[in-house]
């Protein structure tokens, strides 16, 4: 079924304006009454399993893609993904609204990623230890590829460039682009300062821009 822009219809049919206005209001009502993440989590705490389902469907894509692009291994991503959501499930009894649910969710995801790195390499990736200063960003290895015109080619190139980013910078970029978080939210979720997040993002954007030939 094709959706029709109701604003266009309302303008086009003056006689049917009141009806269409009402219809439009009713159609938009669910969006207006949509529960916040925290309300849904509190409802799940009280025993409403459908509230959790709504929450899960809202975040499953972004969280999964964050994990998949961060650890670059589908099997590990699935394992981490399941573990994160089961932690949410098990934490329902003690859940209180202290921060936004999204920040809490990605905080758990970040901690699980750190555990994953430690399990693999016994140490944290260097990118988490040494944050790049402004001069590092300026001195970052930049590629100067031929200008990419095709959209699909651009996307493929961006994907390669994201994979090539150091872990900490990649995480900051993914949390911003995939999760839609602010600098402060990223800082809270990754247990670091806002300035560090800003520095990591600046580094990531610079490298991606250079790699894409957009500088």
């Amino acid at each position: 079924m094709a959706f029709v822009d109701m604003d266009v219809v309302i303008k086009a049919v003056p006689g049917g304006l009141p009806f269409f206005r009402s219809w439009h209001a009713v159609r938009c009502l669910p969006m207006a009454l949509e529960d916040s993440d925290e309300t849904l989590m509190l409802a799940y705490k009280k025993g409403d399993a459908t509230a959790f389902e709504t929450l899960y469907r809202r975040y499953k894509g972004p969280v999964y893609r964050y994990l998949l692009r961060q650890c670059r291994n589908p099997a590990s991503a699935e394992e981490l993904f399941q573990d994160i959501w089961l932690r949410i499930v098990n934490a329902r009894q003690g859940y209180t609204v202290k921060a936004s649910f999204r920040t809490w969710l990605y905080q758990i995801a970040h901690h699980r990623m750190i555990d994953h790195y430690r399990r693999q390499n016994t140490t944290l990736p260097e990118s988490y230890l040494d944050d790049p200063g402004p001069e590092d960003v300026a001195a970052a290895d930049t590629q100067n590829p031929a200008r990419i015109v095709d959209g699909q080619q651009q996307a493929a190139q961006l994907s390669v460039l994201i994979d090539a980013l150091p872990e900490a910078q990649r995480e900051a970029f993914l949390l911003k682009e995939e999760a839609g978080m602010t600098l402060q939210e990223i800082a809270t979720a990754t247990d670091t300062s806002r300035e560090t997040v800003k520095s990591r993002l600046r580094y990531a954007i610079r490298r991606l821009r250079d790699g894409m030939g957009m500088s």
Partner: peptide, 9 residues
């Protein structure tokens, strides 16, 4: 920290 072209891509 934000490039709309990269976000769009």
């Amino acid at each position: 920290v934000h490039d709309p072209r990269i976000s769009q891509t």
